[in-house]
Amino acid sequence: MGTIARAVTGLALITATMLVSTSTASASESAAGPAQPNIASAAVYALGHPTASPPGSNDFTCKPTAAHPRPVVLSNGTGANAYDDWAGLSWILKRDGYCVFAPNLGGPEGGMFQALGDIPTTAGQFGQYIDKVLAATGASKVDIVGHSQGGMMPRYYLKFLGGANKVGTLVGLAPSNHGTDLDGLVEAVRSLPGGNDFVGALCASCVQQEVGSAFLTNLNNGGDTVSGVNYTVVATRTDEVVTPYTSAYLSGPQVTNLRLQDYCLIDGTEHINITYDHIAIQLVRNALDPAYAWTPNCLT
């Protein structure tokens, strides 16, 4: 497919996404759905249950233990929802003894597709949600695990919205920290008359995650990190959304950058399924609880 054709196709997909999203009935987060083995099965379930909570999450009566004093807040990627991204990891973290929370933010209330809106606005909503979690659990800080935009967006909260004193660890799975060129699709869309304006009107966060965007320039100006927070990035060489995949990495103190293929050379997990990859899941668990970390491999 030619570059311009791919650009038009991408624009059409975004338009279809928005039409489906805005036609979905409004609803708040609902009861937890079942655990899922991959993003495809989670998405199928979410079609009929767009507000389902990931299993083990969103219990506001949960009280942290001494072993795991910080609740874990999960943050999904662009166009996904909490259940899509976290129906595999959430119950594992709950089983490990964490209080786990996963909001749907940045999209139509009750809609299937979330995290489409202006990222600073979503970050503000995210901060309000964290305050709600802290108030309910009595914890002084949370840890955050985010996928794609969900791994990058909390950095805005940390840097500009007072979140640094409320977060211990931020783990990003294929986060869009330094944007994406979508293998040339971004430049193709920019070359179309009104192309970027069209995309931005439908999906503000899509344009804000383009490499070189004003949003990312502002976010990364003066350094990638803030003091007092530990950062872990898990990237995959076969990422087809955040390209080049190394744009996920952070620089600065208290940063650990990891790659799936350094643990299993033949791991072909791509962007959308990384939250279900067994190596990525173990690396998340290691980052949240370093005292009990162990090194995953192709089989375990």
Rank of each mutant, 00 (worst) to 15 (best):
A293D: 10
G168A: 12
A5C: 02
C62T: 07
L13E: 10
A136W: 06
D143A: 06
A12I: 08
P64K: 04
L74N: 05
S251T: 14
R95W: 00
Y276V: 03
Q261V: 10
C203E: 09
G10P: 02
Y231A: 11
L219E: 08
R190V: 00
A12N: 03
A174V: 13
F198V: 02
L161F: 04
G172V: 10
Y276Q: 10
S53H: 11
V226R: 05
A82F: 02
N81Q: 13
P50R: 09
H178T: 03
A135Q: 15
A164H: 11
R259K: 14
G117S: 13
S140P: 06
T17D: 08
Q209V: 01
C99G: 10
D262P: 01
S90N: 03
S247D: 15
F160G: 05
V241R: 11
T269G: 07
P244Y: 10
T269L: 06
V44D: 07
Y249W: 15
Q254M: 12
T15K: 13
V229D: 07
D181G: 03
Y156L: 05
P37K: 05
N273M: 09
T232G: 11
L170M: 09
G124M: 05
V20T: 14
L89N: 05
I144C: 12
G106W: 04
N76D: 10
W86Q: 07
Y98E: 05
Q36M: 14
G56F: 03
G2F: 06
L116E: 12
L158K: 11
P108N: 02
I14Q: 10
E109T: 13
T121W: 00
L283G: 08
K132A: 08
Y231G: 10
L265P: 00
T17R: 14
I130R: 06
I39S: 06
A31M: 03
N76C: 09
I274D: 01
Q128C: 01
S53V: 07
I130Q: 08
Y157D: 09
A42L: 07
G151R: 06
L158C: 11
G179L: 11
N220P: 03
S176P: 03
V207M: 05
G77F: 02
S191N: 14
V167L: 04
N273V: 10
N297L: 06
H278R: 14
A293C: 09
I281Y: 01
F126I: 02
A7M: 09
T3I: 13
G124W: 01
Y292S: 14
S75K: 00
I4H: 01
G252D: 01
D277L: 08
A102S: 15
A188P: 04
A5V: 13
I39M: 06
Y129V: 04
L202F: 10
L47S: 13
A280H: 09
T122H: 09
G97E: 02
S30G: 14
L185W: 07
G79Y: 01
F198Y: 14
I144G: 10
V241H: 07
M152T: 14
S176D: 15
A43E: 10
K166V: 05
P34F: 04
P71I: 03
P54H: 08
L134V: 08
A201T: 09
T269V: 03
V142I: 15
L192D: 06
S176G: 15
R155F: 12
R285W: 00
Y276W: 12
L216Q: 11
A82L: 04
T246P: 01
